[in-house]
């Protein structure tokens, strides 16, 4: 139960932008059916909506978010805005996320095409321990890392990218305590590909 409480606490703390999933009753050594869907937020909310809730402003328009640091990670994400992204097609259901696998790429942005529902999934493989990853995308779209072991800790809440704040790029950072495969859930408009990047702090 402690793990469940921890997940709930972390989810509330991060206002559901980052989540850890699964619960203590279904996980443990040998759990074959761990499925990280306990931390999925209200599906009607976009990141822009949630940012509006955070700041107390209406969901329309540019929400007030903190401005993140202007450091190497933030600058790298801004640089990727000028590159040709790698195209991904997200799947529509959580259990199929393993069909699309990516790793953090310092020199590659991704353009993710979403299913008609506007909610898509894919797998992010983290090949290191105790590594910080910056996730960037525009504020109309939301990103959530689903974590069935609660191995992910949000170290920077949703912020405007401090290196290119005017671009509308947001950034959040997560510390992955353990390596592994993590399911990413993207919400946006099905008609508009989501441009995002995952950059590792070396």
């Amino acid at each position: 139960m402690m793990r469940l409480y921890k997940c709930i606490f972390l989810a509330i703390l991060s206002l559901n932008f980052s989540a850890c999933g699964d619960n203590a009753t279904s996980h443990g050594d040998g759990d074959h059916n761990a499925r990280p869907d306990d931390c999925i937020p209200d599906e009607s909310l976009t990141l822009g909506d949630m940012a509006g809730q955070m700041s107390g402003e209406p969901p329309m328009g540019r929400p007030q978010l903190p401005v993140g640091p202007n450091d190497a990670l933030a600058q790298a994400a801004c640089t990727l805005l000028d590159t040709v992204p790698m195209e991904l097609i997200a799947v529509s259901d959580l259990s199929s996320a393993g069909q699309v696998v990516v790793t953090p790429q310092p020199e590659t942005a991704f353009s993710v095409r979403l299913p008609d529902s506007g909610i898509g999934y894919f797998t992010l493989e983290i090949p290191d321990w105790s590594v910080t990853i910056s996730s960037s995308l525009t504020y109309q779209q939301s990103l959530m890392i689903l974590d069935d072991n609660c191995d992910v800790e949000q170290t920077q809440r949703l912020s405007w990218n401090g290196a290119c704040e005017e671009s509308g790029l947001t950034e959040q950072r997560h510390l992955y305590h353990a390596w592994g495969s993590f399911t990413v859930r993207i919400t946006g408009e099905a008609t508009e590909p989501v441009r995002l990047s995952f950059i590792k702090l070396d």
Binding site: G30, N33, G98, S181
Partner: peptide
């Protein structure tokens, strides 16, 4: 197999179910 998921040659079987 309770320890060895995900399944299939390419790991696309998320759960035993």
């Amino acid at each position: 197999l309770a320890l060895t998921g995900p399944y299939y040659h390419d790991g696309t079987g998320a759960t035993l179910r």
